[in-house]
Structures are given as C-alpha cells and as structure tokens.
Amino acid sequence: MGDWFQTIVDVQVAPQNAAALASEVRDWLISSSVILADRTDCVLVSDLGYPPGPRADEAVDASGWSTPWQDVWTNGLDITTTRTVFDGGQGEPRAVTCPYCSREIELVDEYFQLDDAAWEPFRDVVHGWDEGRDVVIPCPACSRRVQPTAWKWADDYFVFGHLGFTFWNWPPFRPEFVEEFARRLEGHRPVLIDGKL
C-alpha cells in the first residue's frame, strides 16, 4: 500500500533564512489549527512531526476518501530546513529540461528503466547537491553550463532547496490553501511535489 506524501518546497529561500521562515509558517499553521503544536511520532524519515489539527480538513479535499485520513499513524507534517533534494519517491526521473534551450533529455528507456548513459551526468548533479556541492554540467544539447537548481525535472521529480514542508498521507490540498501557503513564504516561488514510498 505505501505512504503518500505532499511536499511544498520553497525554491527561493536563502539557506540562512530557511529556519526563520519555517518557524513563521509553522506558527501560522498552528494558529490556524491546521496542525497541533506538540510534536508526536507521526511522520516517516524524522523522529517527530506535527499531527493534524482540528481544522486540517479545511486545507484538503477529502472527498472520495472512505476512512478518516487522520486515523493513519503517519499523518503529520515534517519540516526540513537543510539543503535537500526533495523527490517524488517511487519510480525514476523520466526526463530533465535545459533552462536555456528547452531541450528535454529523456532519462528512461521504453521500459521506463533508467538509461545509464543519459542519467550518469545528472546522477552527479543530484548526489552533489545532497553532499553540499554544486555540480555544474553542460547541457547535452546546447553545451551551456547549467546550475543544479536551474534544471527542470519532469513532473518536478527532483526539487532542490533549503526549506520543505512534507505532509504525510494528507488528502490533496485545496488550491486556496496552497495559495495562502505561498503568501506565507514571503512571495517566494513554491513547488508542490507529491509521491509515494
């Protein structure tokens, strides 16, 4: 069955401002009763997270969900404030696009298996970011050198950033919640990714 997640990533916050902005957004979510203030064992990957609050249903569209989603053990919010490659979970990155020439580079074959030759330079980009290095490679099509955060991953499979809010097993967010969340990020551009483990 697995666990589903949605992550809102602020792709513009400076590393030194990530923790302060995370606190502001967390305080807004608590004061809005979307999450509770006391952390519990309710998330994967981290030890503790913020469980859903009494008004969490107002942030999501739970139509079609047969059981109360809050009854799932992993139902909390995990906040990340470090340099991270946020990813879509299961599966493989399908393609990546150059920000300069807009050429899409396919990374999987006809069986949706990673094409090792195509993936090899991008493996270094992804792992480098996780290790604290900016691996800059040329686009295979136009040869312009591309910063790691500038590549556009198909379906936002990878998103590089310093601030992410991962909600475990919440129904899809309502658009108005995502819009208000974006406002709380001081006008920075958020990217919403979802996936399954």
Rank of each mutant, 00 (worst) to 15 (best):
R94C: 04
T97L: 06
T80R: 11
D27P: 05
E92M: 12
S32P: 06
V45W: 11
D71W: 03
R94S: 07
V25I: 15
T81P: 00
S31L: 12
D71I: 04
L48C: 03
D38I: 14
Y50G: 05
C42R: 01
A56R: 02
D47Q: 11
S66W: 13
L29N: 12
G76N: 06
D57H: 11
V43L: 03
T82C: 08
T82G: 10
S31I: 08
A62T: 04
T82F: 15
S63E: 12
D71N: 14
A56M: 07
C98P: 03
L29V: 02
S63R: 15
L29M: 14
T80S: 09
Q70G: 00
L36D: 13
R39P: 15
L48H: 10
S33P: 06
P52S: 13
I79S: 03
W69N: 03
E58H: 11
G88V: 05
W28N: 04
S63M: 07
A37M: 02
D27R: 15
T80A: 04
A62N: 11
C98T: 00
G49H: 09
P52V: 13
R55S: 13
W28A: 01
D87P: 01
C98L: 04
T74Y: 10
W73Q: 10
N75A: 11
T84L: 04
